[in-house]
Amino acid sequence: MWPAILAVAGTLLGVLATGSVQRRSDADRERAQHRREQLAAVTALISALVDHRRAMWSREDARLSGAPAAVVAEARAASHVTRSAVTLPEVTTLVFAPSLQDEVRTAIRTAYALRNAPDAATLAALREDAVNAADALTAAAAIGAVAAAAVFHILISAPPSPWWVNAMVLTTVAVCTYTATGNTLHNREIRRKAK
């Protein structure tokens, strides 16, 4: 009788272990899919903002330089198309990466601010602000991705890692965060000196 009880208990434990591994694997796939969707959303938004910033620069430069009305109207129409193209990636990014809300709003607001610049110097400064805001959004997204991967590794990976592995992962997160932030600040400083 004991062998039968042990066999049943072993079978039940095997089923529980298999179910646990399967649930963990499903959760891992869902998290990876969510990270891919976040990356796609942020990438699409940055691309749309670059296109809109370029279109606004052309539009305002044409207006400020006294280009013919037809050229200004064509540039205005192009900027309307690129502005509309920002909406979908904006919403998608806010849905999949709500932690980036402030950076998203700032990047969009600064790209839209190029409109009706009073002179060429102001237009250049507004463009610089828009570039910096897009860089800050990119850095924040990168920092978030690295931090999410670290938290995933520490909290969810099986089997639990030794303390020193977790310490190395957290150190890597800190270095990446510092590097991303430092690169953004360094790029801003280079652009300021180039003026």
Rank of each mutant, 00 (worst) to 15 (best):
V165F: 04
P159V: 00
A145V: 05
E128V: 06
D135W: 07
C176I: 11
S161I: 04
L114P: 02
G144N: 04
A142T: 12
A120L: 10
L123C: 10
A120C: 00
V175N: 08
A134E: 15
A147L: 10
V175S: 03
V131P: 13
A117M: 09
S161G: 07
V146H: 10
A133T: 08
D129L: 02
G144Q: 00
A149G: 15
A158W: 13
E128D: 10
A136S: 15
P162M: 01
H153F: 04
W163D: 10
V175D: 06
P118V: 14
W163H: 12
A139I: 12
F152I: 00
A124L: 13
V151C: 00
A142V: 05
A139P: 06
V151G: 01
L123A: 07
N132S: 15
A140T: 12
A133K: 07
L170K: 07
A117T: 10
W163A: 05
A142L: 08
P159K: 11
L155V: 09
V173E: 02
A148P: 01
T122S: 13
P160H: 01
L170G: 05
V173A: 14
L114Q: 13
R127Q: 08
A167K: 03
T138I: 14
P160K: 03
P160L: 01
P118W: 14
A124N: 06
D129I: 03
V146M: 14
A141Q: 08
D135L: 04
A125F: 07
A145K: 01
A145I: 00
L114W: 04
A120D: 05
D135I: 05
A124R: 15
I156V: 11
L137Q: 03
V131H: 10
M168I: 09
V175T: 00
E128N: 14
P159W: 03
L126W: 03
